[in-house]
Design a protein around this nucleic acid. Sequence first.
DNA 1: TCTTAATTGAAATGAACGTTTCAAAATTAA
DNA 2: TTAATTTTGAAACGTTCATTTCAATTAAGA
Lengths: 193, 193
Amino acid sequence: MPKTETFNRNQVLQNATAVFHKKGYNGTSMQDLVDATSLNRSSIYNSFGSKLGMFMEVLSHYQSLYKSQMGKELMHSHNASNMIKAIFDIYLKDIYGDRDRKGCLIVNCKSEMTNQEPLIKSFMEQNQEQTIAMLEDVVHNGQMEKIFNEDQTAAQYALYLYSSIQGLRMTGILTNNEEELKNLVNTVLTVLY
Amino acid sequence: MPKTETFNRNQVLQNATAVFHKKGYNGTSMQDLVDATSLNRSSIYNSFGSKLGMFMEVLSHYQSLYKSQMGKELMHSHNASNMIKAIFDIYLKDIYGDRDRKGCLIVNCKSEMTNQEPLIKSFMEQNQEQTIAMLEDVVHNGQMEKIFNEDQTAAQYALYLYSSIQGLRMTGILTNNEEELKNLVNTVLTVLY
DNA sequence: TCTTAATTGAAATGAACGTTTCAAAATTAA
DNA sequence: TTAATTTTGAAACGTTCATTTCAATTAAGA
C-alpha cells in the first residue's frame, strides 16, 4: 500500500501563507514557496496541483483561522455590544502585531485578483456573504436587545460594518498608532447607538 | 538640434494606467505596456526609465485626475455638507462606472506594494496625508458652521472618513448596487451630524 | 518479503520576464 | 545642408517564471 504524506500539511500551509501574505500572489514565485515550505517542487505540485491551487488552500486556511478566532470571542461575549467590540478588537490586534505592514491577506488578494481570477472572485463572494451574515446576526441581536438603534436594518448596518473593516485593514497598513485606531473604531461604532 | 518627443505623453500615461489598473503592478508585463501604449520598448525606457518609473508616473497622473475632479466639485459646493457629499459622490460614480471591478488604482497599489517598495510607501504616505488634510479642512469648516458636531476633532473625523473611503473602494469591487452603496455612504456620514 | 504507490531530488522544459544594445531613421536649429 | 540628438525597431541579454519529467527512494499493507 502507498506511502502516505509525511510533511505536516498545516505547517506547510502556515509557511506558505507567510510568503503569500508578504509578497502577494503575483509577487511570490514557486522558488519562494519551495524555500519557505522546505518542500520539494514536485511535492508541492503533487499535493497542491499548482501555485494557484496552493494559494486557494492558503486563503481557506487563513480564513478558517479568523473564523475560529471569531467564534471563540463570540462565545465569551454576552451582549451584542461586547461582541461587535470583540470582533473589531481582533482586527486591531492583528494590525498592532503586523510589524511589516502587510495588511490583511484576504483584502490584499481581493484587490489584486478578484477581477482577474474567477476562483478568487468566488472565494471573495462567499467570504463577503459569510462575514456580512455574521455581522448582520450580531446587529440584529443588538437591535432586539434595544442596545443598537433601528435607524437602518441589520443588513444595512452589516454592510456598513463590513466596509468599515476593510477600510480599517487598509488604514492599518500605514497607520498603526493604537490610540488613533481605537478612536477610529469607536467612531465607526457610534453609528449603532 | 534634438528631435523632440513625438508621442502624446498624456495619452501614453492614460493607456498605461488602464493596464496597470486592470492587472496590477506585478501582473503587468513590459510587453503589456508596449502593446497598450504602442510605444517601442526602447522609447519606454528612454522616457520612463523603468517599469517602476513608468508606474510612478501613472500613479501621479491618476492622483492628479482625482485632485482636479475634487477641486472642481469643491468649488461648486457652498457648505461643508455638500462638499463632503460631493466627494463621496465622485467615488460612487467611479464605482458605478467600473465595469470590470478593478477598484481604485491607489488602494490596490497600497495593498500590493507598500510593504515591498519604498518609493510606493512614500507615495502612499503623502497621498494619505494630503487626503486627510483635505477632509480635515472640510470637516473643520462644517464644525465652524455648526453643521457637523464636535464629538470628535476634525482630525479624528478626517481619519474616519479616509478609512471609510478605502472601505468603500474595497466594497465597490464586489458590490455595485447603487442603492446599497448610497445607503452605505449615508450611514458613514450620519456620524458627522 | 514483496507489491504498490507516493515522496523526493535534480534536472530540464519552453516561455516570459525586465532590461540593454545598437544601428538606422527622423527631426530640428544652425 | 549639416550637425546634433532623440526616436525607433529588432534582436539579444541573462534571469526567472511555472510546470514537467523521471529515476531513485521510501513506507505501508498483503
